[in-house]
Design a binder for these strands. Structure first.
Lengths: 278, 278
DNA sequence: CGAGAGGTTGAATAAAGTCAACAAACGTGG
DNA sequence: CCACGTTTGTTGACTTTATTCAACCTCTCG
């Protein structure tokens, strides 16, 4: 029930004492974004020139460690990440966290709350964050007069689903090494998209959180990163990562479950090994 | 492009020779459902008394083994399962299938196609099926005049997402035994909902498909079912399942990744063991 | 400078996967 | 309708992978 938590000024701290701050929009922001800004952020075509000057969406800020929403809390808004890093988690019957995603710029939060009108996951800021608040009622009302927006909403929901499906595919079929490799590639791509270096970056989450996200223990994550470091695919030092051989990371699939014995499994294995061993 | 398929009369056959019939609505159906029927099926409130007499949706039939849609095929419709059993799969770079879901009555198919306008998964009939065809354009057009329908669409998409999230949680955090147990409980619940026996039913899929769905090998699935049989929680014979101790199945969670060492892990383990051992 | 959280590494263990042999059911064609 | 080949399911022996437990190290923050 109770969660630990102390929000500090530095990005890299999460677990804080419990029930200190209520989740939700404390620190009301000063910034506003137009509908067009929002669509641009989501990479969604927005053609219509309308009266959007007064269609503005408020920003909200969260400090590292703060919760944007908690499980069971009443749903009334989606959020788009304008800046910062977060994690979303499910909490099981024993209080164990299962990390579902690490939202960053342009990602959307809160979609899981639409259907039951209660958020079914918890979103926690891993660094100081600036989010755009999208009141759901307002959004759907707008969608009725702006067809592109209507489509955008459907698209975004579907996109989230496809993302989760890819995650299921990964958890169901890949080895620990392959999962960690994909995780690094994914981060690299995202950083590139945000205009940061895709070769050199800092992890925003702990080994424990990465492990939870990938269905592995923190030790396995640590060991795998060390192994990649060893063979020169990356250089890792604590949370600093340098990608040295992106192609190798991308090709490092491995097939631990025997989902593929029927086919060309021998060739695959050899090809994968070539990368894994060196 | 072309997909394989030869539908046979018996339910239990899938992988078939290639490039025979294109996926999609061969055998145009004779049945139609009203918007109200559809909403009822989805357990969605539908209050408005409107001109729905002519808002009819066509049914389509698929025989066991046929594909409803394939990966990369143009998206233009969702489907609701009216009767029958299916599987949806992702196919990786080596042609290995990853089962994503086993849709049955009242489930929706095709949502993953909305955003890219291409289906990103493949749906295969495991038995003869009767589906309701929902042309997406028609659906969204209708939603503009029927607010409940608009909400229904958002709800359904969100619901799918929550389902996938639960799946990720399961794959990321549960042992083989716990996954198989949950799978059985899930089936039991679904059969109950459809008015069938929740205690005695037939599996519609192979051990291989179950394994793929749960991120396990077919041998592990087989062994786990045998073990449950051994200790009397179920009786299993090939595809016939009898649930003998539903509560035990529901309580059989187990925590193989160390996602929980911080807390009351000892008590949990003991409680789980009590069930697992007997 | 000291405490505590986060990270690394090693050794032992446990869980699940692999390979292989066999058995049961199905469906096809003689 | 029965025999036979194919697909599906079961089980055992063994191997591999990842987890567990524990010690130690390293940063950061107060």
């Amino acid at each position: 029930m109770l969660q630990t938590q102390i929000s500090t000024s530095k990005p890299f701290s999460q677990t804080l004492p419990s029930s200190s701050l209520p989740a939700g929009r404390q620190c009301q922001g000063r910034l506003w974004s137009s509908l067009k800004d929002v669509c641009d952020l989501l990479r969604i075509p927005f053609a219509s020139v309308c009266d959007d000057e007064d269609l503005l969406f408020q920003h909200v800020q969260f400090k590292a460690g703060q919760r944007v929403h908690t499980i069971g809390q009443n749903f009334d808004a989606l959020y788009i990440v304008h800046s910062g890093f977060l994690k979303t988690v499910l909490i099981d019957e024993y209080g164990n966290e299962q990390v579902l995603s690490f939202p960053m710029k342009a990602d959307i939060l809160g979609v899981d709350g639409i259907n039951s009108r209660l958020y079914s996951s918890e979103a926690v800021a891993l660094s100081d964050c600036d989010l755009i608040l999208l009141p759901f009622k307002k959004l759907t009302a707008l969608a009725r007069t702006h067809v592109e927006l209507e489509n955008a909403i459907y698209d975004v929901l579907s996109r989230e689903l496809v993302r989760e499906q890819a995650m299921v595919g990964m958890l169901g079929a890949l080895s620990a090494e392959a999962r960690v490799a994909r995780f690094l590639v994914m981060l690299s791509d995202r950083f590139a998209l945000m205009g940061y270096s895709s070769k050199f970056f800092n992890l925003r989450m702990t080994r424990h959180e990465i492990g939870s996200y990938l269905g592995l223990t923190l030790e396995t994550v640590s060991r795998t990163l060390s192994a990649f470091n060893e063979i020169g695919m990356i250089a890792v030092n604590q949370r600093t990562i340098e990608i040295k051989d992106l192609e190798a990371l991308k090709n490092l699939r491995r097939l631990p479950p025997s989902r593929n014995r029927a086919k060309q499994s021998k060739e695959n294995k050899l090809a994968a090994m070539a990368y894994a061993v060196q």
